[in-house]
Nucleic acid binder design. Structure first.
Length: 628
RNA sequence: GCGCCCGUAGCUCAGUGGAUAGAGCAGCCGCCUUCUAAGCGGUAGGUCGGAAGUUCGAUUCUUCUCGGGCGCGCCA
């Protein structure tokens, strides 16, 4: 990777200066290498002299001059200039640049992979919607983001496990309502008030057909299975696959939820005392006041099945305690989550770190989910430093040891569980917001979006091809924006005017390369094996240099994305790489029978550009068409 | 009230504390007898919501403020 290489060369120049006594010893950071914005600034630039000047006790210009001198001895640089307040502008020799082309051709798409400094086994859970409807265009964003993030993490050297959590619990209020809606339709009755009304509900009812005398539970099982299969198909069409489809109900069936509740009660992280703790938080999250709200048992409730069981999540900075078991004995959704996370951590192959990708409406869920994990991790035998409880803490914790154990557990939970929220997508159709709630029937299914996009683009193609196009456009569109920013999805723009979508710009570059390579083959210029260094050394045009540098940047981009999850930058990178190729294509004719060596060098460059494009397309989950 | 996110070109949005803030689309002017014109070149378009602070340097970090979206259930 060129940037890493340059950073190391800069550092070793610094070490030479230290050894020569020209610069004091110190704990200098690894230099940063940036792309130069204009050609007169060379290929790359570093602000190292600026950032290290203070530690070196020199002015930035002075340190810059010494570094410049030390770097002049390095054969990789054609020139090293000192500019502005102390920027080092680095121009590479052709020999140093073309080494990249050789590397890429040798490694193929694997050149984009890097080795993580700290490789981890990561479980990434995403989409995970209720099996009560098709995957919507809203979930599409989570699907595109989650699958791409998984690809990126894997490419950055981590072991990645993709997981879908099926919310099929029999206690689920929503799923019961869905089952009742289906049951009503099958039995020819009106769906209940607040029930599910979309066409797809009728489709589920039709698929189930004539009823015997079945209860709601039977309908729930049947309709869930139908919806789940549909979701799985739609996601696969969208290019999203999972290693594990995990059933919530299986936790109940295996008795794991009950076992976890007992465990938490034994640790006194949960209990059935008749109160709920509620924290009043000041700005910045500091606890201002602790309120205990009495939750008296309802005296009229004669069945007396038991008391409400609370998770004392306020011990872990959640703003209120959460119900694990309702008074009537039914378990809540979060109770399943306790067992689910216990299960996830207990699996030997993916226990390091959990990433959970949730939609914007689940923002309020982060605190309690983190508290769930912390409660599981809390070790009651731990002792703290004995600092007495202050009056506020005394209303939350029993002892100072418990406070310290909980703090330690919370810190560990935050380390091991990362909840990533993607922001809302607003769908606009015919200039108006298009609501897509499942219950009012006005849903917008992801698969319908793919079909629409494909039909406009390729009216004569078959359905598979249309959906491929739809998938490429939709995935690219979702991924263009940062997951943490709101986005408008203008459906009219995405369909009627989709030829304006930049996905075609980047794919066109790939199709163009294919055309050039076909032409080269016709002219008998295709060679097997690597062109010699002398031949590759003919790649000296600025457009060739720019293309090589852009190809070389992919591993660096992947690593950045893996660090901060900003996978949307890959779409920008794809555009930049495609642009670099289009510029090269425009200015440098590849196939020239009168100049076979130059042609071969350029063919090699085309091939590495193609490898780069395919690699980034693979990460984004879009196709690399041979013709357009 | 508390929390998360956003405010950058006409529109939709990029922009790891660095040099002259970018792209696509929309607008205007050019370029196909040569490998795909779904392309390329040129042109026009900006008080980076506002104010203070940190810094050699702030669109980027901190605080405040104005405007907008969303979330704060014994629903998931």
């Amino acid at each position: 990777m060129i940037r890493d290489e340059l950073a190391l060369r800069l550092r070793s120049a610094m070490e030479r200066l230290v050894a020569a006594g020209e610069v004091p010893e110190g704990d200098y950071d690894l230099p940063e290498i940036a792309e130069s914005k204009s050609p007169e600034h060379g290929d790359y630039a570093s602000n190292f002299a600026l950032t290290a000047a203070k530690k070196a006790g020199l002015s930035p210009r002075e340190l810059g001059e010494r570094l410049q001198k030390a770097l002049a001895a390095d054969a990789a640089f054609e020139s090293v200039d000192l500019a502005g307040p102390g920027f080092l502008n680095l121009k590479l020799t052709t020999a140093a640049l073309i080494a990249t082309v050789g590397d890429v051709l040798e490694l193929g798409e694997a050149y984009a992979r890097t080795r993580a400094d700290a490789p981890r086994r990561i479980n990434i859970e995403f989409v995970s919607v209720n099996p009560n409807g098709p995957i919507t265009v809203g979930s599409g964003r989570g699907a595109a983001f989650g699958s791409t993030l998984a690809n990126v993490l894997s490419s950055a050297g981590h072991t990645v496990h993709r997981e879908y959590y099926i919310n099929d619990g029999v206690n689920s209020e929503q799923m019961r309502l869905f089952a009742e809606s289906v049951k009503a339709l099958v039995e020819g009755r009106a769906v209940p008030e607040n029930g599910y009304k979309g066409d797809y509900v009728q489709a589920v009812a039709d698929a189930i057909g004539v009823s015997g005398d079945h209860g709601t539970g039977w309908f729930q099982t049947q309709s869930q299975a139908i919806m789940l299969a549909k979701q799985r198909d739609d996601l696969a069409t969208f290019g999203v696959e999972f290693d594990t489809w995990f059933s919530e109900q299986s936790l109940h069936d295996g008795g794991l939820v009950d076992a976890c509740l007992l465990e938490l009660e034994a640790k006194r992280m949960a209990d059935d005392e008749p109160y709920r703790t509620v924290l009043k938080l000041a700005k910045g999250g500091k606890v201002e006041e602790v309120e205990r709200q009495d939750q008296p048992q309802d005296e009229d409730d004669a069945d007396g099945t038991g008391n409400t069981v609370w998770l004392r999540s306020t011990k872990f900075a959640d703003d209120m305690d959460r119900v694990l078991r309702r008074k009537d004995g039914r378990l809540t959704y979060i109770a399943s989550d306790v067992a689910y996370h216990r299960d996830k951590f207990s699996r030997p192959l993916n226990a390091d770190k959990l990433i959970t990708v949730l939609g914007p409406d689940h923002h309020g869920y982060i605190g309690r989910l983190t508290a769930v994990v912390a409660a599981l991790l809390e070790r009651p035998d731990q002792h703290g430093d004995g600092t007495p409880l202050d009056p506020i803490e005394a209303r939350i914790y029993r002892t100072s040891d418990e406070r310290d154990a909980c703090a330690a557990a919370l810190a560990e939970a935050k380390e091991r569980l990362e909840v990533v929220i993607f922001q809302i997508v607003r769908f606009v159709k015919e200039g108006k917001p298009a609501p897509m709630r499942k219950r009012d029937g006005n849903i917008y299914a992801l698969i319908d979006l793919l079909d629409e996009l494909g039909k406009i683009q390729a009216p004569d193609a078959d359905l598979d091809e249309q959906r491929r196009i739809g998938r490429d456009v939709a995935r690219y569109f979702y991924l263009m924006r940062s997951h943490e920013t709101h986005m408008d999805f203008d459906i009219d723009l995405a369909t009627k005017r989709s030829d304006e979508n930049p996905v075609f710009y980047v794919q066109y570059a790939h199709a163009r390369i294919e055309a050039v390579l076909r032409k080269a083959e016709e002219e008998g210029l295709v060679q097997f094996g690597m062109p010699s260094r002398d031949v590759l050394g003919l790649l000296t045009d600025p457009r060739e240099r720019a293309l090589i540098k852009k190809i070389a940047d992919l591993p660096w981009e992947v690593r950045r994305c893996a660090e901060d999850y900003g996978v949307h930058r890959l779409t920008s990178y794809a555009v930049e790489l495609a642009r670099a190729y289009h510029h090269f294509y425009d200015g440098c004719r590849v196939v020239q029978p009168t100049q076979p060596d130059l042609s071969r060098a350029r063919i090699a460059l085309c091939r590495s550009a193609q490898i780069g494009l395919r690699a980034v397309f693979g990460l984004l989950g879009i196709s690399a068409p041979e013709r357009m």
